Simulated assay, not measured.
Amino acid sequence: MSVRLGKIGYLNVLPIYHPLETGILPMDCEVTSGPPAELNRLMDAGLLDVSAASSVEYARHADKYYLIPDIAIGSRGPVQSVLLLSRRPVEELDRRTILVSAQTHTSAALLRVLQAKLWKIRTVFTTGSATDVLGTGERPQAILCIGDEALNLRYHPDYPYRIDLGEAWRELTGLPFIFGVWIVSRESWNRDREKVEQAANLLLAGKHWGEENIADVCVMAAEESCLNDEEMCSYFDGLVYDLGPEEQRGMRAFYESLVETGIIERVPELVFLPSA
């Protein structure tokens, strides 16, 4: 079997996947690229074996997955690519409508938590592409955008109020926020443990390569973005690729908040790949 590997189609995972996709680290996987929401769907449907996925996807279906240890995507403050762009101060958004990217599950859930616990407001969500909507000339009161779209729209002149959800989470809790994790289908693990374990180890090797070559990655990423080299390095400097004790505390705090706000029913246990 060739392992079916999911890849988030954003620049923030370039440090991990570049060495895999260019042959720097030999890979025997079938790669599917897409936004987090699509990878969540594919994992839930059993159409991928190993994938990056939203931390909310793990929370909702923890019994179907194992977490790959010590690899994640998050921040210890500003993340720069998960932004609430607003035409008015956030406190004035009460009872108004926010356009939310259809590509995200975790960021939308985090926004719900921040509204309830930090800003004490309620809003209505509608889903869609911010880039497409803005292209029509329409100007929603507020937009939640993620990934490369957030990097491209963060200085939009019609949206003077910019709230970085990673920074808002730190303001609320003092903890890192983990937007995405790498998960393994338990069914795939039971079917072909050796190959799935090789794929998991390959992702960890890719992470280590990316950390050691991050300056080169910044230059490569800037070539595909509206950000210059300095801005791209600032972006990558703010990202967390670890899933250590502090990041796990942040995940558990998020899951507890999701229970409090009625988004999930219970806090899942963090279950990692079985050791050999």
Score class of each variant (00 low, 15 high):
Ala72Asn: 04
Ile73Gly: 01
Gly74Arg: 06
Ser75Gln: 02
Gly77Trp: 00
Gly77Ala: 08
Pro78Asn: 13
Val79Cys: 10
Ser81Asp: 15
Ser81Arg: 05
Val82Thr: 15
Leu84Thr: 03
Ser86Pro: 05
Arg87Asn: 07
Arg88Asn: 06
Arg88Ser: 14
Arg88Gly: 02
Val90His: 02
Glu91Trp: 14
Glu92Phe: 08
Glu92Asn: 07
Glu92Tyr: 10
Leu93Tyr: 01
Leu93Trp: 03
Asp94Asn: 12
Arg95Ile: 02
Arg96Ser: 09
Thr97Trp: 02
Thr97Ser: 10
Thr97Arg: 13
Ile98Asp: 02
Ile98Leu: 08
Ile98Ser: 05
Leu99Cys: 04
Leu99Thr: 10
Ser101Pro: 00
Ser101Gly: 04
Ala102Pro: 00
Ala102Asp: 06
Ala102Ile: 00
Thr104Ala: 02
Thr106Lys: 03
Thr106Trp: 02
Ser107Met: 07
Ser107Thr: 05
Ser107Asp: 14
Ala108Tyr: 00
Ala109Pro: 00
Leu110Gln: 08
Leu110Phe: 08
Arg112His: 13
Leu114Phe: 12
Leu114His: 10
Leu114Lys: 09
Gln115Tyr: 03
Gln115Trp: 01
Leu118Asn: 10
Trp119Gln: 09
Trp119Asn: 04
Ile121Arg: 07
Arg122Cys: 11
Arg122Ala: 14
Arg122Tyr: 07
Thr123Ala: 11
Thr123Glu: 00
Val124Ile: 13
Phe125Pro: 07
Thr127Gln: 13
Gly128Ala: 07
Ser129Gly: 05
Thr131Gly: 02
Thr131Lys: 08
Asp132Tyr: 00
Val133Ser: 07
Val133Phe: 05
Leu134Gln: 13
Leu134Cys: 13
Leu134Arg: 11
Gly135Ala: 09
Thr136Lys: 12
Arg139Cys: 11
Arg139Asn: 07
Arg139Lys: 15
Arg139Glu: 15
Pro140Ile: 05
Pro140Ser: 11
Pro140Phe: 03
Gln141Ala: 15
Ala142Glu: 03
Leu144Gly: 04
Cys145Leu: 09
Cys145Tyr: 01
Ile146Cys: 12
Gly147Trp: 01
Gly147Pro: 01
Asp148Arg: 05
Ala150Leu: 08
Ala150Asn: 05
Leu151Met: 05
Asn152Ser: 15
Asn152Gly: 13
Leu153Gln: 11
Arg154Tyr: 04
Arg154Met: 15
His156Thr: 09
Pro157Phe: 06
Asp158Glu: 10
Asp158Leu: 11
Tyr159Asp: 03
Tyr159Met: 07
Tyr159Ser: 02
Tyr161His: 14
Ile163Lys: 01
Asp164Tyr: 03
Leu165Asn: 00
Trp169His: 01
Arg170Lys: 12
Arg170Phe: 08
Arg170Glu: 05
Leu172Lys: 09
Leu172His: 12
Thr173Tyr: 07
Thr173Ser: 14
Gly174Glu: 13
Leu175Ile: 06
Ile178Phe: 06
Phe179Trp: 11
Phe179Asp: 04
Gly180Phe: 12
Val181Asn: 13
Trp182Gly: 01
Trp182Lys: 09
Val184Asn: 08
Val184Ser: 06
Ser185Leu: 04
Arg186Ala: 07
Glu187Gln: 11
Ser188Leu: 06
Ser188Val: 01
Trp189Pro: 07
Trp189His: 12
Arg191Phe: 08
Asp192Met: 12
Arg193Lys: 12
Glu194Cys: 04
Glu194Met: 10
Glu194Ala: 15
Val196Phe: 09
Glu197Ala: 14
Ala199Trp: 02
Asn201Ser: 14
Leu202Val: 04
Leu202Pro: 00
Leu202Tyr: 00
Leu203Ile: 13
